[in-house]
Design a binder for these strands. Structure first.
Lengths: 141, 141
DNA sequence: CATAACTGTAACAATTCTAGTTACAATCTG
DNA sequence: CAGATTGTAACTAGAATTGTTACAGTTATG
């Protein structure tokens, strides 16, 4: 199950931005920390920018910074910003509609999915970037 | 993000089994309702059997049935049984260990993941197969 | 105002996952 | 023993994700 690695990457990038508040960071530099290609980072930053979590600037000396201070952004916002993310997916081929279970199961699962997603969001909303930042900084390695 | 379609499929299959309590169902028949290959079903049933949710019988007139009645099985058990499932994945390549964020982010995300997973499980444990079964049966289609 | 440093994004390639398939040994029923 | 059925390995196909290359559009700065 390759779930959403976008989310992890987003948090990683946002931590970097939280560290260097005010200063623009380049996609190249961020890519170096995440260990991926700058384009991958720029794509991600695009999603975060759409959700108004970051601001990017093109041109020389451009780059990206947080749009607000880290205590005013929570992980639920990040999750929604990048979320292609459902906890479980429906089966690729649709079930047999001639079967009483097959006919109805999708709707039921879909509702369930919404409820689960809701509780994930609720949990994530308890964490601000600031609180995650503190965890990262105080971690013993 | 193609999350865990295993879970949906498991619930579907378990609904079928809940319907025909006592009677063994064949993987071939279940595959017909889910609209997939019998081997895919048998693999899934293997996981459910490991978790003691179902009992299978080989040989002629074999098949699978629930190990307990539907009100005694909840969705958290199902989730755990099939779960390769995390809500978000870590990035494929590991982060740059020379970066203070890269060095610590994985551990922090990993803890977060556990917490999220915990709240998903908590939510799912509120639903018994019986209650889902009732939703499927009363659905208007 | 020319140049070099960046972002945004499209188009394509490579890789990795997941699901589906085939095949067959092992097991059971009657 | 014959026929039905599961369990599982090994392989294939297809989908999804991630990475790469390329380049147009922006902007700071000498």
């Amino acid at each position: 199950m390759a779930a959403n690695s976008q989310f992890s990457m987003a948090v990683h990038v946002l931590m970097m931005l939280a560290r260097s508040r005010e200063e623009n960071l380049k996609s190249d530099f961020l890519a170096g920390s995440v260990n991926t290609n700058p384009v991958v980072i720029r794509r991600l930053l695009g999603q975060l920018a759409n959700a108004n979590l970051v601001v990017s600037q093109t041109g020389a000396n451009g780059g990206t910074r947080l749009s607000r201070c880290p205590s005013e952004i929570n992980l639920a916002e990040v999750y929604k910003a990048v979320s292609c993310g459902e906890v479980f997916a429906l089966h690729g081929r649709s079930p047999n509609q001639d079967c009483p279970v097959g006919r109805n199961i999708e709707a039921v699962l879909c509702n369930l999915q919404k409820e689960i997603d809701h509780s994930v969001v609720e949990k994530l909303s308890q964490y601000s970037l600031q609180s995650v930042f503190e965890q990262v900084e105080t971690a013993e390695t």
